[in-house]
Design a protein around this nucleic acid. Structure first.
Lengths: 208, 208
DNA sequence: CCAGATTTTGAACGGTGGGTCAACCCCGGT
DNA sequence: ACCGGGGTTGACCCACCGTTCAAAATCTGG
């Protein structure tokens, strides 16, 4: 019982360490011994808790994404205004905009997920779930805004989730790459602007 | 002279083979011997033409992207209608929509470029160039449409290039991943729809 | 047809890193 | 105190792969 608790902690500890190492060094440069070192543990132990490096990496990637998702949806639940929810979601989605949010750099992990999902069926399956959840979060906000009257009637929330989600993905990549032509702040503005256009509401009504 | 020609052919031959192998197996699983095999050549020769595997891979990725870009811009130049240009560009950008266009799967290579660019400065630099060129292509179409009067006056072509480009990127990833919720045809429709909304022209006027 | 340069080969080297395993440690129960 | 079992260690094995290199093949100009 106490034993099980401890075992679960080790599991999570390793997953966290793995996620950190992956963000630091990249998936390709992540060695089992790096993860072990980050845990302050011997390399052998990693494979005691995970049957292979590959499976650990997949779990670590989804684990990190879960962390972000939970944090975000907790915040969303606290807000009542759909406009503010949307603004916050975008804020959280712009790489490097909020220094206080520990830079686990979600987006770098997304790219690793994609590249792996291209060949690894297990990762592909996970990716689809994570992606659906991400678009769903946006769609939920849109739906909520439609219900409260903040957004117009007759809009397709799921469709907008897809469109806005894709836009954010595309822009986030560019920002993540430190592209000189797109600053984080600019991305934030563009996201809000396009979202308001697509959803059909006025930006002016929502001051900071 | 004939010597130089031959050497250049070998160079290109290797780059092509490398690009193929990368699309097939993924960057991480690409071995020098795979590339050599695809060329029908011994592994040692690869390193005779390229100083290291890493440099070859970067060159191969940009080479493949160049191929696509050249093909696309050649097509664009042949068309006079900006609407048709835009429609065609989108058509070419949807993964798996056109079976006749040899499936070198540009987008899979893009993801490999991104993941590598995160850590490799040389790749990062190349990526920025390729990305700028991609958004520029869209912006050029928008500009052209504005000049011919197909699109409204007063629109910011570069800004629209960024927005539409990002949207296409985001959607293309999802389609490339074979996501059950987004078919190639659907992506095409969505791209056209959003583009027309953002640019501000009517879709109805441009039948197939 | 020779000589020198260039291209091509494939064996060998060396480092690396995932996975295995036998031993050790530590804790809880009896 | 003893025992048993799960947790932990770290050395070892082994396959793999980038790179090197000396030798062979091929080509080119004279």
């Amino acid at each position: 019982m106490a034993r099980q608790k401890q075992t679960k902690d080790r599991h999570q500890e390793i997953l966290e360490a793995a996620a950190r190492v992956i963000t630091d060094r990249g998936l390709a440069e992540t060695r089992i011994s790096d993860i072990a070192e980050r845990c302050g543990v011997s390399p052998g132990l990693i494979l005691y808790y995970f049957e292979s490096k590959d499976r650990l990496l997949v779990e670590a990637l989804t684990f990190a994404n879960d962390q972000f998702y939970l944090k975000m949806s907790r915040e969303m639940r606290r807000m009542t205004s759909a406009r503010k929810q949307l603004a916050r979601l975008i804020e959280l989605s712009v790489p490097g905009l909020l220094p206080e949010y520990e830079r686990l750099d979600e987006w770098a992990l997304w790219i690793e997920i994609w590249v792996r999902a291209l060949r690894d069926p297990a990762m592909a399956k996970e990716r689809e779930v994570l992606d659906r959840r991400w678009r769903q979060s946006i769609a939920d906000i849109v739906r909520h805004g439609r219900d409260t009257g903040e957004f117009p009637d007759g809009i397709d929330a799921d469709d907008l989730g897809m469109r806005i989600g894709a836009l954010v993905d595309g822009l986030a990549i560019q920002v993540l790459m430190n592209d000189a032509t797109l600053s984080p702040m600019r991305m934030q503005e563009v996201c809000l602007d396009v979202a308001s256009t697509l959803i059909g509401f006025s930006l002016e009504a929502v001051p900071a």
